[in-house]
């Protein structure tokens, strides 16, 4: 059975696409799936850093597309998970070095050998976005619970629908339960009401994400991290399991409301 191409994108930059790509990939791979990550953020690559594979890059996506190397040669195998691979982006070129058609053809090839092809998209709505979206079977839109990020997510969801790639699903990243409780942050329900799409998961604000990104070890492999658990749950949902939102993902929901009712809360 050919694999699934999942594109991870956002309207606003810096909301956690690269973090989500690396962690969902690691979580899927640790459940035995064959996974390849494709960094489509040409000129601003950093998926290799988050995965801790930077020093192993010889060839990149543009080398493959321009025929300077074979696909195999550009694939870097992860040092912890033998069935996780990365195709890095070129750092010294710009987005026009690759076309949407190149991406479709490349993914058609990768689909034959891998269960999942995860594409880390650049932010925005230009060529880089169209490159990342063209081969997608499924699209995951990442946003933070902020009004401006949600507005940009809405825009991107519309463009995904226009490309007949919808319906996209949502990953709400960096939710801070304490801020939601104080009424100073949009909660998951608010965001879903604004965007009217399905939710794949909520990842809490968690400093272990930053620490492990700097170390090149995805937090999804850390059994003690709350964000790691959230990413593992997202991977299970992608595999078709019915995993309920965990209490801390569901902030602003029932548990907090009960807490408030009983005067606990903080």
């Amino acid at each position: 059975m050919p694999g699934t191409v999942l594109t991870i994108t956002s309207g606003k930059g810096g909301v956690g696409k690269t973090t989500a790509t690396a962690n969902i990939a690691a979580a899927l791979a640790s459940r035995g799936e064959k996974v390849v990550c494709l960094d489509a953020d040409i000129g601003l690559r950093n998926l290799d850093l988050v995965l801790g594979l930077e020093n192993r890059i010889v060839y990149d996506l543009v080398d493959v597309v321009e025929g300077r190397c074979r696909l195999r040669q550009a694939m870097i195998r992860d040092k912890r998970l033998p069935n996780l691979f990365l195709i890095p982006a070129a750092q010294t070129r710009d987005k026009t070095a690759v076309s949407p058609t190149d991406m479709v053809q490349l993914c058609n090839e990768l689909r034959q050998d891998y269960d999942w092809v995860l594409i880390d998209s650049p932010a925005g709505i230009e060529r880089g976005f169209r490159n990342a979206i063209a081969p997608a079977d499924q699209v995951l839109v990442v946003t933070n619970p902020e009004v401006s990020a949600v507005r940009d997510a809405d825009r991107i969801i519309g463009l995904i629908e226009a490309e007949e790639k919808g319906p996209a699903r949502l990953l709400l990243n960096r939710l801070n339960p304490a801020l939601v409780r104080e009424g100073n942050m949009l909660d998951a329900e608010d965001v879903l009401e604004l965007l009217a799409i399905d939710l794949l998961g909520v990842v809490p604000e968690d400093e272990s994400v930053v620490v492990s990104a700097n170390r090149g070890t995805p937090v999804a492999l850390d059994a003690n991290s709350r964000a790691g658990l959230a990413f593992r749950n997202i991977a299970r949902r992608l595999l078709g399991e019915d995993v309920p939102l965990m209490p801390l993902e569901d902030s602003g929901g029932l548990l907090q409301r009960l807490g408030r009712l009983f005067g606990k809360g903080d």
Binding site: I125, R151, D154, R155, I157, G158, E161, L194, A196
Partner: peptide
């Protein structure tokens, strides 16, 4: 007959009827 999301613009010389929501933006 669709949701109009942020960044979408409909311009028409006659009347416009939308079945769906019109989002901010």
């Amino acid at each position: 007959h669709r949701t109009l999301r942020s960044g979408m613009r409909i311009a028409f010389p006659g009347h416009v009827v939308v079945i769906g929501n019109v989002h901010p933006g």
